[in-house]
Amino acid sequence: MKQTPRISFYEASARQRVAGLLDPGSFREILPPTEKRTSPHLGLFDAPVSFDDGVVIGEGTLEGKPVAIFAQEGKFRGGSLGEVHAAKITGLILRAAARKPQAVLGLLDSGGVRLEEANAGEIGSTEIMRAIFEARRVGVPVIGLLGGSCGCFGGASIIAGCCDALVASEEARLSVSGPEVIETVMGVEAFDSRDRALVWRTTGGKNRFLFGKVATLVDDHIPAFRTAASALVRPSTPLRLDSLRTERDALVRRIATFGTCTDAKQIWEKMGLPADRVSDMTAAELTAAKPA
């Protein structure tokens, strides 16, 4: 049987991901690297800059639908949210709120705020959150795509939490505090950051999908991300008091059901899943097995 070659989202650069997701030739970059809007802070640390400050932004079409898109480059300073980096994302989302494409796609691949840029990066990441809520208020959905080598941690994870929906692969990791941060604060007995299986079954795409945080689980294949993102393009669900209350009630039920579990495997067992087989399942198999 002839198999379609896997085009890994995990291994691709931000530019390769954008090129692979959008319709061929449709992408128009905003503030391209030729503009050389580099970080004004990194020079103070004698650190190298990047011509796009680690994020590609622009517009194009996704299966014919006009979209705005940003893609963080996880390999440049951990995809960190620097001042210019964050301002590019904020500007793109506010432009989308004004011009109303059918969606904003956010390819998050980031350890969070860029430490060298401290307050400017912190403020920048909160400006992105505010811009997302503005886009959602006017009906433009923001869809997060997770599956990069850096994961999605710190401020970037909160940005992911502000999105309408997330698409993720098993390789994705989503958590406010990164594994090494948890180990440093709570001790290695609480969380061993070098235990790869522990890190992935706790923060990985499969566990986030089973918990309902990720809407669509896909295999690590760029066309799979494209199909999943396209299927999620629909007018944004407004955030209102009643929807927040519904969300809070679901969280209360979750802690009541799973609050005593000390490992993701125990949670999967309680969900009625074959816990030892979850890590070997494909995205389609786990989607079929997931309890309603």
């Binding site: 391209p32 690297p33 030729t34 990047s50 011509f51 796009d52 440049f76 300073r77």
Partner: peptide, 10 residues
């Protein structure tokens, strides 16, 4: 094309 980029500053 107006530009081409190769590689990442890693």
């Amino acid at each position: 094309k107006a530009y081409a980029v190769a590689g990442v500053v890693a």
